[in-house]
Amino acid sequence: MKIVAFEVRNDELNEFELMKNKYGLTIKTIPDVLTAENIKEVDGYDAISILGRSIMKKEMLDLLKNKNIKYIATRTIGCDHIDLEYAERIGIKVCNSRYEPNGVADFTVMLMLLTIRKYKPVLWRQNVNDYSLSGLMGKEMRNLTVGIMGTGRIGAMVIKELSGFGCEILAYDIYHDKEVEKFAKYVDIDTLYKRCDMISIHMPLLVSTRNIINDDAISKMKDGVILINSARAELMDMQAIIKNVESEKIGAVGLDVFENEEFIYHINRKTDIIKNRDMAYLRQFPNVVMTPHMAFYTDLGIKGMVDCAIEGILKFKELERKGKL
């Protein structure tokens, strides 16, 4: 089996080497995004692995099909950068990665604590030797009602971690998880909006969930509600977020993801002109905490992403050998 991996960061190289030796594979690693300009890199290979900046829509998928690529493994949980329906139609199999939810859950709880304890303005002040307390009074988690939208592996882990703080936890999902019910109460979405002091979103990005946090949803929430998103940026209508931060309907926001973050996040852009006005505008508010899509970024997270991608490709190959694919 010959695999070429694109968008490979230095922190992934060792794990790719371990997987190559473990399974006796040929793996070529390339730091660049896969595009039509460097498609020749896949010549002679059976499968590719990518991250989220390699956009696999119809034209690119056709190019890969013509190069006899059978399998695509994205080292991300989300697959919205791949046209899955068209890939299936032309016979290219696609798998995503699955890694332990603890790292993202930890990071989500950190964003919650940073917002309720107003750490951003605290950091600003102490950098100029201002140690005053005015305007910095925070809240205690145990006194809050926290809503979790989406109780898959990550949402469920966030709920489990939050249970130790003693807060009331409400959950919303079309599927109810008996393990989640040990720590949280499932309610309908309008009840969650109405009752929660803080809401964290952990849904996949689907047609039905795109911009689920919008003006109408926010209007049903408490004044001063705190919103957390470490899932997908497009789950939130960013114009609605900005407007409601300005009006102070939203009390604070913690974001690890942002619309049109591609080719900004995970790159050194400190001497560049960055063309994302919403990002530049929103991050200047003292009650908005933004991090560069790094909730996944732990040693175990990286190991899981690489291992899952390679093992997914090998599973496809095995199913094909058995005539089950």
Rank of each mutant, 00 (worst) to 15 (best):
319 L>H: 08
39 I>R: 11
286 P>T: 10
325 L>T: 08
83 D>M: 03
174 I>C: 06
52 G>K: 04
322 K>F: 07
314 L>C: 02
69 I>A: 10
291 T>H: 14
244 N>Y: 09
154 I>C: 09
46 D>G: 10
146 V>F: 06
166 G>L: 14
21 N>Y: 00
225 V>S: 00
59 E>T: 13
307 D>Q: 15
241 I>D: 01
302 I>K: 11
305 M>C: 14
21 N>A: 08
255 L>K: 00
44 G>S: 12
292 P>F: 06
290 M>T: 13
158 V>M: 09
146 V>I: 15
3 I>D: 04
194 K>F: 01
63 L>C: 05
219 S>Q: 13
267 I>F: 13
246 E>R: 15
104 V>E: 04
239 Q>K: 13
200 S>P: 10
291 T>D: 14
153 R>I: 07
264 I>D: 02
171 A>N: 08
276 N>Y: 03
85 E>M: 07
198 M>T: 14
139 K>Q: 09
240 A>F: 11
36 A>W: 00
36 A>I: 15
316 F>T: 02
135 G>C: 11
109 V>L: 08
184 A>H: 03
56 M>G: 00
215 D>Y: 08
183 F>L: 02
63 L>K: 15
53 R>Q: 10
276 N>F: 02
76 T>A: 14
150 G>V: 07
121 P>V: 00
73 A>K: 03
156 A>R: 03
262 E>I: 07
157 M>N: 12
205 L>E: 02
33 V>H: 02
261 E>F: 07
80 D>E: 15
26 T>E: 14
321 R>M: 14
131 Y>L: 15
271 T>V: 09
145 T>G: 05
168 E>N: 15
143 N>R: 07
132 S>V: 09
236 M>N: 13
262 E>W: 01
149 M>I: 15
94 V>L: 13
